[in-house]
Design a binder for these strands. Sequence first.
DNA 1: ACTCGTGTTAGCTG
DNA 2: TCAGCTAACACGAG
Length: 279
Amino acid sequence: MPELPEVESARATIERAALGRRITEVDDTDTWVCRPHAPGDISAALIGRQITAARRQGKSMWVETSPLDGDQQAGPDLGIHLGMSGRILISSPYDEVAEGGDWGGGGYGKGAHSPDRKPEWDRFTLTFEDGGTLRLFDKRRLGRVRLDPPLEALGPDAEKVTKADFTDRMSRGRAHVKARLLDQSVIAGIGNLLADETLWQAHVAPMQRVDSMSSDDLGRLHTALRKATKAAIKHGGVHTGDVIPYRTAGARCPRCDGEMIRDTVGGRTTWWCSQEQVA
DNA sequence: ACTCGTGTTAGCTG
DNA sequence: TCAGCTAACACGAG
């Protein structure tokens, strides 16, 4: 399930497999996934254009589109958010590329009509001139597709944010530090697992209030975030984090053997070490 | 059978 | 203004 590393993987796949392909057909009839657009809006805006770039900021990604033939004005951006269960699938006349990392019975190699590949789970489809497709495959229907997504609402990307910018943005107000990490308008790209991993790596208690944190605490948190994000991208997903396997009842901290504690912080299930992560 | 959850957002409430 | 809560989405896992 996608956090920043999985989204980056999907973006890279689009870049590798969809650039330059011309859109001839769009299925945007799922008005929940494509809201606030009406059916046909996205289709009318994209048909005849080519995909020219695939970009990402945090967990949001978008593709850029070319001008129509004989015109100079570039087309709209098409924003794609994978939600919690979305994947990008790209097919060509020659083969099929499944994308997003395999996070749970994804259905590789199973027929198009197997129980894991119901056609109605394709929530949005671009069809290309060559007959191939780019689909948003999403069992839970939590993904989003829209034209010209509001990127200005996102903070800087978690993989790239500088220490000064991170410290400045994190320290405003007095929310719990975990809630602040999850706020996509502060830093873009941190999901629930990456937040727990980052806090554990930095020895910071998730319920500590940001206005009580020292610059040393915030500096350690920034270092841990960059390191955890980079490691997750390299190893294929957030679930490869050091503490993630210990987010379970009765588990003990893999560093100090202290008891792992569970509670709700920032509205999400949170696990932390009772000995090392103390406010 | 029943609860929970790797995400987001609108609408409320304090 | 800030922060926290709930509902909605729909399915698989425990």
